[in-house]
Write a protein that binds this DNA or RNA. Structure first.
Lengths: 229, 229
DNA sequence: TCGCTACTGACGGAATCTGTCGCAACCGGG
DNA sequence: CCCGGTTGCGACAGATTCCGTCAGTAGCGA
């Protein structure tokens, strides 16, 4: 690989990661020595890329870019198509529609050859075995999450006890056949998760919850020991 | 000026002009010889830049090398993030990397407020229960599909009989825990599907298969009664 | 304090780049 | 049909850059 190609791919590697990467990892990824990596970083910096390097932590590309990114590779197109097909198959109707809408927008900026890749992609998703869960609940929960509003739900717990709770939904997890909403539960005053198929009814409340969802998400991650993805 | 810096500014020069420029002009602008300019153009082309050069006319950068800004709805962003996370979790390593790469590229052409939606998306994919299948086989099959090449595989059928077949892979299906490749089997002279975890070895052949993959895909769909997605 | 990591400098051998020359192929206009 | 302008390619020798290794400094977090 030529050096200039390598610089571009280094930029991509940095762009891809939202948090710090150590030089050693990058060097291995590119197949060069650590010393050369530092030289490459220096080169990019002199050309205008804003790269933070902190000792003991790693490198990070600050948003604010030297160049608009290059066009998608055909593998990236494949990944997007496959992912969208999965969403179209597994998620509730509005989200499924959004998935194909997003794909259409991407297609419209693609050069001819890549558009062919997109349209003729051979990566398909097998149909889900389980029947689709109630889409209305999923849609309502996502809406509340997006806008950071509280909702009131009728819930049936694992022991089949009914309860009614006010929760602050902060994440929605997709598993093989079920979906689980992670939320702060006002009743229990702690983070809980609720299977979507055990929620009988969702009533959106007009009250915003008092913290940023991102903050809550971070706290939940910390409490469960889940690293930043 | 280092060569890599020069390549970037050559790209800028080409992008700035809507119509053809002669090599001589570009060479003078960059302060290099004509021969070196041709070499630089060739380098950019091998790196994916689509540059038309017509004798007697000049060079021109065709659109589609750099990504234009994109606009999505919040729901479309959510769909893309969710889909990409699923791919990043379930597919083989290169495809998983491509998924996050695509997302990063999308992020960098998004306006600020939408970028926040992308980074703070609360839609997550539960970890797969099954161990990941052998990524090398999946990668090799995808490559053959993309380039329409035949491959030779060692296969263990449902009755545990070993066989070696030359197949034309045309599609790869992702199911809950397994992946299945759909292919034309030269041995059986018909479309067959092969579980990826029962393929012991994949040997890429240097021969292209004689029909377009899209045509074969259509024939297979017809033979199975699957509608166009 | 310790471990990890970002940085920098120097050096010699390897790899790449550069300009020059020559030549073929192609386009448009005379 | 020819001719000037242009892209494109190969070869070559000298200049330049690049690379890995070794050594050392310094900052961050625990």
């Amino acid at each position: 690989m030529s050096r200039s190609a390598r610089l571009l791919s280094l930029l991509e590697s940095l762009r891809r990661r939202r948090y710090s990467v150590t030089g050693k990892v990058l060097a291995e990824e590119l197949g060069i020595s650590l010393r050369s990596l530092y030289r490459d970083i220096a080169t990019l910096q002199t050309q205008g890329a804003r790269i933070d390097g902190a000792a003991g932590v790693g490198f990070r590309l600050r948003p604010g870019f030297l160049m608009p990114p290059l066009m998608f590779s055909n593998e990236e197109i494949e990944a997007l198509v496959l992912g969208s097909r999965w969403v179209a198959d597994r998620a509730d109707a509005p989200l499924a529609t959004a998935a194909s809408g997003a794909l259409a927008k991407i297609a419209s900026v693609l050069p001819e050859n890549l558009r062919e890749d997109l349209e003729g992609s051979g990566l398909v998703v097998g149909p889900s075995r389980e029947p689709k869960p109630d889409g209305a609940i999923s849609t309502a929960v996502r809406k509340a999450m997006r806008e950071e509003f509280k909702v009131r739900v009728d819930y049936l717990d694992a022991q089949n006890r009914k309860s009614q709770r006010t929760i602050w939904p902060i994440a929605l997890g997709f598993f093989e056949s079920i979906q689980v909403v992670v939320a702060w539960c006002e009743l229990r005053q702690s983070f809980r998760h609720f299977r979507l198929d055990r929620i009988g009814n969702v009533q959106p409340l007009p009250t915003r919850y008092p913290k940023k969802r991102r903050i809550l998400l971070g706290q939940w991650r910390a409490s469960e020991g889940i690293p930043e993805s």
